[in-house]
Each structure stands twice: as structure tokens, then as C-alpha cells.
Design a protein around this nucleic acid. Structure first.
Length: 215
DNA sequence: GACCAGGTCCTTG
DNA sequence: CAAGGACATGGT
């Protein structure tokens, strides 16, 4: 009866993406240079973007909003600036670890720009505190590489839509129905978050289910 | 006061 | 491997 559930999931993913494209059109998201994206990617872990923006502004005031600056900064200075994002002690450590990796291991952001995407991704994942979502955010928004970001909102929408693919497979699923293009990936992700922020605030999230049904 | 936020790591069973 | 806890502040 049912064909491969993978094909079924692809169809649902296509419907969602096409609906969101009609609804939001082209939206830009996560402006900032590569270093600022890296910092923001750590700060936004389990945290609202509103608070991340405040922290980034405080870092900028202290000239700490760049990877080289973080690399040589005192932990307390970083902590004081990012306190409003929560988990500030751990995040300060993670920022320092990431900065050390970028500056000492890679030799700076410029060197990383010439690395193949897979190598770059593996390198980022080797840093403590950088998981899949953080790495893909940095790749997509910071290095303009086509690596689709799966976050809590994407997982939630996929679940509501009746997509059966387990989380580890969602990245490949969405990448398979989108053109392999950084802009396509980043905009699709931005639309998902925009939609989920306003609609998926309840546990039920009936809207997404209906969306997948009606396409 | 309870509950959640654009995760990740570490420890246990 | 799955499940549970820790990390911490700020808004509803």
C-alpha cells in the first residue's frame, strides 16, 4: 500500500517547504561576518535569539566580538558579556575552545575558507561544545556552505507533519528535496524557524499536521 | 512559581 | 544505544 516511507517523507517535506516559501518568500537571516556567526552559534544553544543579540552587542562594545579577540580574552570578561544567554560559564569555555581551534589548529578563519566542506565540518565537530546543529549553522551561515541545519523547530515541524524519518536522517531528507545551494538551505531553515516561532508554541501544533495533510 | 528557549556533553543502565 | 541530568539566565 504505502510506497517507501522515504518517498512519502520527501513529498511531505516538499509540501512544507513550498508552503513556507509562498508564505514568507525570500527572507534573510543571521547577518554578520564569519566570526560573529561562530560566536552566535554557540551562544544560541538552548537560548532565545533575543538574548543572543544582547550578548553580541555587549561583546562588540568590549571589542570582543571576533574570534581573535575571544582567543586572547579573559574568561570573566567573556562571561560578563554573555551572562544573559544562560549557561554562561560553559559557553565562555566553549567559545575559548572554538577560538583556540580556529586560531591555533587552523591558523585563522582565512585558512578554514579554503578547506573542503566535509573536512571543515569534521573539524568543527571535533571541538567540545560544537554539535551538529552548531556546526551546520556555522557552515551554512558563516562559511556559505550548503549544509542544512536541523534544529528543534525543524524536528518539531517534521514530527507534526507526520514525517517518519528519525532525526539523524532529517538533514539528508531536506537536502534531498532542496537544490544543493547555500541560499536555498539558509532560507528554507529561516522560514521553518519563522513559522515555528509563531505557530508551534503549543504542544499540539495542529497547524503543521493540517499543513502536511492539505499541502 | 512553573515552564521553556534556534544544544551538547557526560554518566548510567 | 537510550535515558537522564547538568549547565543558568530571562521572558511568559
Amino acid at each position: 500500500m504505502s510506497g517507501s516511507s522515504s518517498a512519502d517523507d520527501k513529498r511531505k517535506a516538499e509540501r512544507i517547504l513550498s508552503f513556507l516559501e509562498d508564505k514568507y518568500g525570500g527572507i534573510s537571516w543571521w547577518p554578520g561576518d564569519t566570526g560573529e556567526v561562530m560566536i552566535g552559534a554557540i551562544l544560541t544553544q538552548q537560548t532565545r535569539w533575543e538574548n543572543v543579540k544582547k550578548a553580541l552587542a555587549l561583546l562588540q562594545e568590549k571589542d570582543l566580538c571576533s574570534v581573535p579577540a575571544i582567543h586572547t580574552a579573559a574568561p570573566e570578561d567573556i562571561e560578563n558579556a554573555i551572562r544573559c544567554t544562560g549557561f554562561y560559564r560553559m559557553k565562555a569555555r566553549r567559545l575559548l575552545g572554538l577560538a583556540a581551534y580556529v586560531m591555533d589548529t587552523c591558523g585563522g578563519i582565512g585558512r578554514m575558507e579554503s578547506m573542503p566542506t566535509e573536512e571543515l565540518r569534521a573539524g568543527l565537530l571535533s571541538v567540545n561544545g560544537v554539535g551538529e546543529e552548531t556546526a551546520d549553522s556555522i557552515l551554512c551561515y558563516g562559511f556559505s556552505r550548503p549544509s542544512f541545519v536541523i534544529d528543534a523547530y525543524t524536528v518539531k515541524i517534521a514530527a507534526c507533519a507526520g514525517i517518519k524519518t528519525p532525526r539523524p536522517g532529517l538533514k539528508a531528507l531536506f537536502e534531498s528535496v532542496l537544490p544543493k545551494d547555500t541560499s536555498a538551505y539558509s532560507q528554507a531553515h529561516a522560514r521553518i524557524v519563522e513559522y515555528a516561532k509563531e505557530r508551534c508554541t503549543t504542544k499540539r501544533c495542529e497547524e503543521c499536521r493540517i499543513l502536511a495533510l492539505n499541502g
